[in-house]
């Protein structure tokens, strides 16, 4: 280290080493942030594609709770995602997810009076708006 410092003395010797270190860290962070942000910009920005899956169904005091996950396989963010679950007997339940970012997932839950496991449970993301 000492030998290298002799070879490559900093141009202004009165600058503390800590300043070099923290400035270097800041420069790396700024470059990394810029790189990540710009890579994000180059990604295919396809509108949201929402895939929805039921996670777990649990009996609660007033009925049944079905947890679900909405996965956005598109590149762009979906906001105000309306999720509807319909049972075979015609009972429906709704939930709205504020935001499902592109390439990410968000979870929510639906409540039903009758047992969702009895018949077919149809989960559907009905629509979204751009944030």
């Amino acid at each position: 280290m000492a030998g290298r410092a002799k070879q490559k003395a900093p141009p202004t010797p009165d600058i503390p080493i800590l300043e070099w270190v923290s400035a270097g860290a800041g420069g790396l962070m700024a470059l990394a942030l810029l790189a990540l942000v710009l890579i994000d910009a180059r990604k295919e920005h396809e509108p949201p594609i929402l895939k929805i899956a039921a996670l777990e169904t649990v009996r609660t005091a007033g009925g049944w709770r079905v947890m679900f996950e909405v996965r956005n396989e598109g590149g762009e963010t979906a906001a105000g995602v309306h999720v509807t679950g319909a049972l075979a007997d015609g009972e429906t339940a709704n939930a709205v997810l504020d935001v499902v970012p592109g390439g990410s997932a968000a979870e929510g839950g639906l409540f039903f009076k009758s047992d969702p496991r009895a018949g077919r449970l149809a989960l559907r993301a009905e629509g979204f708006v751009e944030p």
Binding site: P11, T12, D14, S22, A25, G26, A30, L33
Partner: peptide
């Protein structure tokens, strides 16, 4: 600071602090 270069180093350091 001793000059603009020193200020640029300080700015990067400040950015590092801000980011952390």
């Amino acid at each position: 600071t001793t000059g603009l270069f020193d200020d640029a180093l300080d700015a990067l350091a400040a950015f590092a602090v801000g980011a952390v």
